[in-house]
Structure formats: C-alpha cells, structure tokens
Amino acid sequence: MSNKAAINTSNAPAAIGPYSQAVKADNTVYISGQIPFIPGTMELVEGDITAQTRQVFDNLKAIAEAAGGTFKDAVKVNISLTDLNDFSAVNQVMESYFEQPYPARACVQVAALPKGVPVEIEMILVL
C-alpha cells in the first residue's frame, strides 16, 4: 500500500511533462517547479519579473490549497532565475506571500528554464 498521492488542480497550469503538479507523501507535499503560466490558457503571463513571479506564487498557492495546505505550511522554497539581477524583485514578491518564520530557501541562477521563462519556483510543505 502506497502512502503517496498525486495532487492536481485546474487552478494551476497543467504539467508540461511526465510529472505531477505535486505529490503528497504522508504529511509532506512536494510541489513541482512552477513557471509563470496562466492556468487554463497555458500562456505566459505578460509583464515584468514582478508580475511573472506573482503568477508563479499564485500557481504554487493553488496547488498547496489543493493538497490541503497554505504557505504557512511551507518549509522549503527553491527558486531558479535566469538573471540574478531579479533577486531583489523576487524577494519583494515572496515577502508579500509569506509570514515569519519564513521557510528555508535556495535561489540560484540557471542558464535556461522551460519555455524560456525567467523564473521557476518549487516548494515543500509539511502539513
């Protein structure tokens, strides 16, 4: 008997590959990396890094809620940026979604991300 379950919601973009939006194992939820796609249309949200990062966090929020959690349950956030000059803007957006104590976090610059987007964020929740 497996203690893991796939989490999927139409309130976040569908997976663009062979993966689940999230997987819940016991009381831990592993949310796959989200990019700034609009649910339903699967189109890139228009705007600067701030608008795109807000869309990513909105997508993460929808998946967290589908799993029965909130950002208060987040214990780890991993951020990938194609330009570390966006670090401050991403921090400001993240701060508007989370309360202290903030989750642990990593932020790295990468050469490229799927669909040419500038930001991808994944998150782990403990419910």
Rank of each mutant, 00 (worst) to 15 (best):
T9M: 12
Q55Y: 06
G47Q: 08
T41Y: 09
E95H: 09
S88A: 14
T82Y: 09
N8Q: 14
S80L: 11
T50C: 00
E99S: 13
D48W: 07
C107A: 14
L84A: 05
D58A: 12
T50M: 04
E99R: 10
T28Q: 04
A74C: 08
T9V: 09
K4E: 12
N78F: 10
K61L: 13
A64C: 08
V77I: 15
P103C: 02
Q100T: 14
D48R: 06
N78T: 13
D83C: 05
P101V: 06
G33K: 01
P18G: 10
Q100H: 07
K61N: 13
V75I: 15
V93I: 08
E43C: 00
Y102T: 09
S88T: 11
N27L: 07
A15W: 03
V93E: 00
F87V: 02
D83E: 11
L125V: 01
P118G: 06
G17S: 14
Q109P: 02
T9A: 11
P13I: 00
A51S: 14
R54W: 01
I49D: 03
S32V: 09
L84D: 05
K61C: 08
A12C: 07
I63Q: 02
V110M: 03
A112M: 07
Y30D: 03
N3G: 13
A22M: 04
E95K: 13
P118C: 07
P18E: 14
D58S: 14
D86M: 11
A74D: 03
Y19C: 09
G68W: 05
S2W: 03
S32P: 09
C107L: 15
Y30H: 03
L127Y: 02
P103F: 00
L81G: 05
I35C: 08
A74Q: 05
A111Y: 04
K4D: 12
V126D: 14
P18R: 14
F71E: 01
F87W: 04
G40A: 02
V119E: 01
S10I: 11
I121N: 01
N27H: 15
D48M: 04
I31E: 06
A66I: 06
N8E: 14
Y97H: 09
T70A: 03
P101Y: 03
L81A: 03
A14W: 02
Y19Q: 08
A12Y: 06
E122L: 11
K24P: 04
D83G: 08
S96D: 05
K76I: 11
V45T: 13
R105C: 12
A12K: 05
I7V: 15
E65S: 11
V29I: 13
A104R: 11
A15V: 06
F87H: 15
G33S: 10
M94E: 07
M94Q: 11
L113T: 10
G47Y: 09
Q109M: 08
E122H: 05
Q55E: 15
T53K: 01
A112I: 05
V75P: 04
A89K: 14
C107V: 15
Y19N: 11
G47F: 08
M94L: 07
A14I: 10
N8R: 12
A67T: 07
N78G: 14
E65Q: 12
D86K: 07
F87S: 15
P114F: 09
I49F: 06
G47H: 07
K72V: 03
G116A: 11
V110Q: 05
